[in-house]
């Protein structure tokens, strides 16, 4: 391996870790919080939604105006350009002002503009990032639409500008466009807190939770947090409503039960009506085991934990 590829690989790794770090904010409370950065794809989709909304408004107004005969055919393109301009300029700035950094499209996709330093969004920042949108979003879009009319050097200039507008957010760790960098903002996914019941808790159907299932400590040494949480996902999904899918779910559950039984060496066979209870009991026991291990500094990420710690010891 040449030193060139080596340093390139290291730079790539450093970039990847910075991208992961970009989702974290550090509030004065001293506990790092997670505010995942919205990247180019979702931001582009929100832009399209906003565009559709403004275009519908535009068409409605143009139809009303033409019905009132306020302009004739010779100036229709100028009027449309003017109206579009006067709809979109205030639309973005005013919605983001009123909804604290969300346009209609951003609300639908649950993303939000935040100040890069974690403080409140200032009016200046919102106005600036939406004025630069003219040059960074609408100008390239117009250039693309009118590309066939451009002469040689104009076409090259247009390609250059479009490339810059695309590459800046794709290369930036926070997926900021130039206007975001100028205004000191970036866009995040608005986290949605979903409160789900405790799985390892006894519930109404407590007879299902019979102490039939008792696991020895050595039976619980096989799995790590990853497998535990995968099992959690399966249990949380629960049996679906549709009959056909219900069958598939029961099938999956049977396979999972079988795999766990073989892995931990649980001799007793589990009838189908007790599989759910078995998995729940196993989940609770496994979680208790792993959590108490973790309290003593033995974090087990996955089922390879034994090999990994052995490897370190050697």
């Amino acid at each position: 391996m040449t030193p060139g590829t080596h340093s390139r690989r290291r730079r790539k790794a450093a970039r990847a870790s910075r991208i992961i770090e970009s989702d974290q904010i550090h509030p004065p409370e001293g506990v790092p919080l997670t505010l995942p950065v919205a990247r180019t794809g979702v931001r582009f989709s929100a832009q399209i939604l906003d565009l559709i909304l403004t275009l519908i408004t535009l068409i409605a107004i143009v139809i009303i105006l033409s019905w009132l005969e306020l302009f004739d055919d010779t100036t229709i393109s100028a009027v449309i350009a003017l109206l579009f301009f006067f709809i979109r300029i205030p639309y973005y700035a005013l919605t983001e002002l009123a909804w604290n950094g969300q346009t209609f499209g951003k609300r639908l996709l649950k993303i939000k503009v935040v100040a890069h330093d974690g403080g409140p969004l200032t009016t200046h920042a919102i106005v600036l990032r939406n004025l630069t949108k003219e040059a960074e979003v609408f100008l390239p879009a117009t250039l693309l639409l009118t590309f066939s009319w451009l002469s040689g050097w104009q076409a090259w200039l247009a390609i250059g500008w479009i490339a810059i507008c695309l590459l800046v957010p794709l290369r930036d760790i926070y997926a900021r466009r130039l206007g975001d960098i100028l205004a000191g903002t970036h866009v995040v996914h608005l986290p949605q807190p979903v409160f789900l019941p405790e799985l390892a808790k006894s519930h109404e159907r407590s007879e299902k939770f019979s102490p039939d299932f008792v696991f020895r400590s050595d039976q619980l040494d096989h799995y790590g947090a990853y497998e535990l949480q995968t099992l959690e996902t399966l249990l949380r999904v629960g049996p679906p409503i549709l009959h056909k899918q219900r069958k598939r779910y029961a099938n999956t559950r049977a396979i999972v039960t079988q795999k766990i039984r073989t892995k931990i060496g649980y001799a007793e066979a589990i009838p189908e009506n007790k599989q759910e209870a078995f998995l729940r009991a196993f989940y609770a026991a496994q979680r208790k085991h792993l959590e108490s291990k973790q309290l003593f500094g033995d974090r087990r990420a996955d089922k390879y934990h034994a090999e990994n710690s052995d490897g370190k010891r050697q």
Partner: peptide
């Protein structure tokens, strides 16, 4: 805690409250 749902809930709740 190894309860994934709880961790996700708290992460989202605190970030939202931070804002």
């Amino acid at each position: 805690s190894l309860d994934k749902a709880l961790l996700a809930y708290l992460e989202a709740l605190t970030a939202r409250a931070y804002l």
